[in-house]
């Protein structure tokens, strides 16, 4: 089915156009144009906006703001976002990274969405349709959202305790068996004072490992100290079985890889 493209100078006008049936927003197109190429007849008209509000990475006042149209390649090479290079470089190969946007990654279904996993661990907020909401709320409601995401923001300080790991079968580029991101805070005695752990491929979209997070607070990052968190990390997960891995396999290896991330 033939596609049509509509381009608007402002996010507001593009949002109005997206109210029509059969329309989808066009980010980098790596998922939505692929769907059209595959014959997804639900996509008739793609809508995009060239609004500058969607672009740019701004770091000021201890906050990082990344425009929704910023690509993975742009994040990966930003000198002040070095810890984020890892999840940004985890997305596809070089050409995909030059196209794939931060906004699009927030909508990517599992086994995709590696960068969104990082944003979830960072406690990012998502600005969409003129309102700003926590990323958890955004991810929960994303299927019914018709608003255009303009940016994501998070505290620069969170990057200091940030860790990320992606497991794939094909190296150096491959679709996730799983991905894990964590932001840990430490007390003066070396124990964990705060923990946010986000999991990719453990549900249809990125999720928090809330029970494991609680088990980690007060613990030391030793094999014994993290054992309760590893034992709890599978609580509430519902991984998919797909050509990359079975749900059983994903659940089996999750504690192993969380352990490596925490002790590494």
């Amino acid at each position: 089915m033939a596609l049509a493209l509509q381009t608007y100078a402002t996010v507001e006008d593009a949002e109005t156009a997206l109210k029509a049936a059969g329309t989808r927003y066009l980010g980098g197109g790596t998922l939505v144009v692929r769907a059209a190429n595959e014959g997804d007849v639900g996509v008739c008209t793609l809508v995009r906006s060239t609004d500058p509000a969607l672009t740019g990475i701004d770091i000021s006042g201890g906050k990082v703001r990344i425009g929704a149209a910023v690509t993975m390649a742009a994040v990966a090479r930003h000198p002040d976002l070095a810890p984020l290079a890892r999840p940004a470089r985890a997305v596809g190969g070089p050409a995909i990274r030059n196209m794939a946007t931060v906004g699009g990654n927030l909508f990517a279904p599992s086994p995709y969405g590696d960068f969104a996993v990082a944003l979830l661990a960072l406690g990012a907020s998502v600005e969409a349709g003129g309102t700003t909401m926590p990323i958890e709320a955004f991810l929960t409601g994303r299927d019914d959202s018709h608003a255009i995401v303009t940016s994501v923001s998070f505290d620069l300080a969170a990057l200091a305790g940030f860790r990320f790991l992606k497991v794939s079968r094909v190296k150096p580029k491959g679709v996730s068996v799983l991905s894990i991101a964590a932001v840990l805070g430490h007390a003066s005695d070396g124990t964990v004072s705060s923990a946010r752990i986000a999991l990719g491929c453990m549900a249809d979209r990125p999720m928090r490992a809330s029970v494991a997070e609680k088990a980690l607070v007060g613990a030391r990052l030793t094999a014994d100290g993290i054992a309760p968190a590893l034992a709890a990390v599978c609580v509430g997960i519902d991984p998919a079985t797909d050509p990359i891995a079975s749900a059983w396999y994903r659940a089996e290896v999750l504690p192993v890889h969380l352990g490596r991330l925490l002790l590494g």
């Binding site: 197109g29 790596t30 144009v33 190429n37 390649a73 596809g92 190969g93 050409a95 995909i96 030059n98």
Partner: peptide, 21 residues
Amino acid sequence: GTCGACSVIIDGELRLSCLTL
């Protein structure tokens, strides 16, 4: 987007022409 056979360079960046409108 999986094979790379359609790769071109657009404004200095490698892209996939099959996924670019």
